[in-house]
């Protein structure tokens, strides 16, 4: 009888162990806009899908997302819900979610939390922070823009003067000025990440003032790209995600956030039992930032060469871009 009980117990333990071993990793992500916004949210969702594919699909990595979480209290509830459901990694993909992560993370010490863009882990062992040195790609885009402008006027359509929206534009201005100090860079801020109508009007205002090149960040820049497309001659430089699909002939290049390397490392650390305590910064040097040149736009060879020089200069540290 005892032997039979032991056999049943062993069978159960083996089943549980095998079951646990085979259980897929589960990652949830909370985002402020849609997974298909051609900008910030899409950059993270695309990276997660890439990592899922690398790991062997849904049997190895389960992904869940909640998007359009522009209301922080709703996002905080979603973060807590996912952690409560036992997700291994909860990503709060928005700089507005910091206080929510700070509030929830201590209650789930074995859950990995990652949030950004920011650098603050709050000194917690289960919180990662991440950000992008957006000024680096901004600089490269600025160099190209300065060499392509004929009117010597460049327009920047920004949402709110914070975070990577600001650092991208700061880098862009430095890039333009590295080529010529006589090129005027005019900036507008709409005060909203989502107001497409006002962003479109801002872009049209730049065009009416003589700008022949535009750039900007946030999900609302689809309006700016639309304004450039309607004009037919104004060029666009993107950031966060590859925006060439919106105007294949007029988008010159986009700075692309590639979070895959960071995600691979966070997952590996989680599986080893480390749940946070580190800040990641995407840079051109680590391939976290990439410049996606649009094949549909015929970039002159000398301009491409200048762009490549700027990229290698930033990677080597000979060009310092101030955020």
């Amino acid at each position: 009888m005892n032997v039979k009980r032991i056999a049943i117990a062993v069978t159960m333990i083996v089943t549980i162990v095998l079951g646990v071993a085979a259980a897929p990793l589960r990652i949830a992500v909370i985002m402020p806009s849609a997974t298909t916004d051609l900008a910030f949210s899409q950059s993270m969702w695309s990276a997660l899908l890439t990592v899922q594919k690398e790991m062997g699909g849904e049997s190895a990595l389960v992904l869940k997302y909640t998007d359009n979480m522009f209301k922080v209290p709703d996002a905080a509830a979603a973060i807590r819900d996912y952690a409560g459901q036992g997700f291994d990694l909860v990503i709060a993909h928005g700089s507005q979610y910091g206080s929510s992560v700070q509030d929830v993370a201590p209650d789930f010490p074995e859950t990995t939390f990652a949030w950004g863009t920011d650098v603050n882990t709050f000194g917690m062992a289960n919180v990662y922070a991440y950000t992008a040195a957006a000024e680096q790609g901004g600089y490269v885009n600025g160099v190209i823009a300065a060499m392509l402008t004929k009117s010597k006027k460049v327009g920047v359509t920004g949402p709110i003067e914070v975070g990577d929206a600001k650092t991208y534009i700061d880098g862009f201005v430095q890039g333009v000025q590295s080529v010529s100090k006589s090129i005027a860079v005019a900036k507008t801020w709409t005060g909203s990440f989502s107001d497409v109508a006002l962003m479109t009007t801002a872009a049209k205002t730049h065009i009416a003032s003589g700008a022949d090149i535009l750039t900007g960040s946030s999900q609302s820049v689809v309006g700016s790209i639309g304004a450039a497309k309607d004009n037919g001659k104004v060029l666009w430089f993107g950031t966060q995600a590859d925006q060439a699909s919106l105007s294949p002939k007029l988008v010159v290049a986009s700075q692309v956030y590639d979070w895959t390397g960071m995600l691979r490392e966070i997952i590996a650390e989680h599986q080893k039992g480390t749940f946070g305590g580190k800040t990641y910064v995407l840079e051109l040097a680590g391939s976290g930032l990439k410049i996606a040149f649009n094949p549909g736009y015929a970039l002159p060879a000398n301009v491409r060469k200048a762009a490549d020089t700027a990229i290698s200069g930033i990677i080597k540290g000979t060009i310092k871009v101030q955020p």
Partner: peptide, 18 residues
Amino acid sequence: SLSISLLNLFQDDLTSGQ
């Protein structure tokens, strides 16, 4: 007037409170 005349696209929360 927003989606097929002025902006010619759709995105979540296109009206932004208009």
